[in-house]
Structures are given as structure tokens and as C-alpha cells.
Amino acid sequence: MSRPAFARLPVTLDLPRLLQALAAIDEDAWRSHFNADYFSGEWSGVALISALDARTELSPGRGEPVHRAAWQHDQRWSRALQDLPLDIVSARLLRLGPGGRIHEHRDYDLDGPDADLRLHIPLLSPPDVDFWLDGQRVPMQAGECWFLDLARAHRVANRDTSARVHLVLDCRPSAWLAQMIAQGLPDTPAPELSDSALQRFQRRLAEDAALSAELQALQDPQIFISRTLALAAEQGLEFSREELRAAMRNGRRQWNEQWSH
């Protein structure tokens, strides 16, 4: 059976303890996210658990999970999660600053039946943060635990004046976790539906053969990007250069993958 796009797990977490541990993190411990092409503003993190062979502590890897300094020096992290029988291979704090944006992308390493499952636990969750997954706004609240299928397209915008911080866990699939996802689905809050400006522009391209042909004739990627942004702005549709680049990367990957199966 295919996985849902998201589900709020029916588990209880000790949010006060997690917030105490978060407050104890030194500001110097936060590191900028390694996917620099995927965000604007401030997107930073602190590794709690990561692979031994990871290029940076925030980067993915295939080696043995290692407890990093923040996890080792503060037992509140492990105690807050001790009632969840999870096989955690990665644990990170991810902070998106005020005005920050994570541009639309997919985490292809999470695709497939044997891939790790990603859980998001919002610790600081201001009201004006939009987390869009598969065209749906996921209404996550502080202290909840959500499974998110981030192999699907997703983006985040922090329109608030304070930071958003999530505890993000990558876990090996298990019968217990599959059961929690299934049990959580009936009570998962309904999402909001919306299209991004880029998606609306893509639909207009599909409907306007002349406009589509004009852009397809542009061979230089930078000229293509600039002209696309200008044409979209003429129609009242605004999206960033980084969002467009991410969509182009996703498009190339999907095009290549269709010939590899």
C-alpha cells in the first residue's frame, strides 16, 4: 500500500522538556543548511544524530549513526523521545528564520519502500508559517509528531517575525511506525489546498502554445530564467529565481528517470 502524503501520529511528546533542551543550544552551534540552492534567508540546523561518513554533520550519509555533541551533552533529547520505539538514523534541529523560504524541491533519497521515514516535530511553530506538501498546506502545531512524505514536492515560507524550529527525525521503517501512521490518519487535521505562482504559470504555459514555444527556443539557462520571471511578472505571478531553478532540476531528474525504469 502506498504511503500517505502526511499523517499526524497519535503519540504524546514532552514539549516543555524539548523546549528546555532547545533553549540550551548555544547560538554558535547553528550551521547554515548545506542545500544552499534550495533556500533564501536563514535556514540553519544543529545535528543531534548523523552518519559517521556525512560530509557535514547536517548532511546525509550511509555510515553508522553517531550521537553528536548536543545529543551527548543534554539527555533531555533522548528522554523526551524514549517512549517512541524508533530506529533513528538522523536527528536534526532545523530553524527557518523570519522571512526565510525553502524553495520547492523533493528529497529523492526518501523515495521507495525501503527508504527512511521522516518525522517532523514542531518545537517553535509561529502561526504565519506555511509548509506546503504535494500542493497542500500541512497544519502542524508545536508538540505534535508528523510523518511527511518529502519525496513529494514541498516548500516552506516563514512569513512570521519569529523563527520556526522543527526537530526532524529520519527513521528506519518498522511495523510500529507503519501502525502509528495508519492510526493517525483518521484524526489528522485537514490540509488547505493551493497552487503556487509557479504552478499557475506552468499551467498557463500548457495552455498557450506561443508562449511555451518562445521559452523553449531559449537555449541559455540564464536567459531562459530571466525571461520566464519577466513573463510571469507581467501576468501578476511572482516566484523566485531559486524556485524556478529547483523546478528545472526536478524536471530534468524526472525526465531522466522515466528512461531508467
Rank of each mutant, 00 (worst) to 15 (best):
H166Y: 13
L123E: 06
P186K: 03
A157I: 12
P113M: 11
L81R: 00
Q72T: 08
I181A: 05
L169V: 03
R203P: 04
L110I: 04
D128M: 05
L117C: 08
L93S: 05
Q216M: 11
D208M: 00
V138T: 02
R152H: 03
Q72K: 12
A91W: 06
L86V: 06
L94D: 02
D74C: 15
D170H: 11
P122K: 02
Q179P: 02
A91K: 01
A210D: 12
Q72W: 03
D116T: 14
G99C: 13
L94S: 03
Q202F: 10
L148P: 00
D195K: 06
R203W: 08
D83T: 15
D87C: 15
L185W: 11
A178I: 14
L117A: 06
A163V: 06
D134M: 00
P113K: 02
A153S: 10
T161Y: 15
P127C: 12
V89F: 09
W71F: 14
V89M: 13
H105R: 07
Q141C: 04
P139L: 01
L198S: 07
A206L: 14
D107T: 03
R118G: 05
A206Y: 08
G135C: 01
G112N: 07
I88F: 02
F131H: 00
G135S: 01
L119F: 05
W132A: 01
D109W: 05
S162V: 15
A178M: 09
D128Q: 05
D149P: 15
Q72H: 06
P85F: 08
A190L: 14
D87G: 06
I121C: 01
L133V: 11
S90G: 09
D149L: 04
R204Y: 08
R76H: 11
S78K: 12
R106H: 04
R137G: 04
L81D: 00
R95V: 02
A163Q: 10
S212W: 12
S90V: 14
W77H: 05
D170Y: 01
P85N: 04
G112M: 10
F201Q: 02
A115H: 03
A157T: 12
L193C: 10
V156G: 07
D107M: 03
A209I: 14
W176A: 03
R95Q: 11
D187S: 14
R172K: 15
V129I: 13
T188H: 07
Q136R: 01
S196K: 01
M180D: 00
P113N: 01
R79G: 03
S194V: 11
A217C: 11
N158L: 13
S78H: 05
P127F: 12
P127D: 09
H103K: 06
A178Q: 09
Q183R: 13
P139E: 01
Q202W: 12
H166N: 08
R92C: 09
Q216A: 13
L205S: 09
L124I: 11
A209W: 02
Y108T: 08
E144S: 14
R204P: 01
V156I: 11
Q82A: 15
A142Q: 08
A115L: 12
A157S: 05
R200T: 14
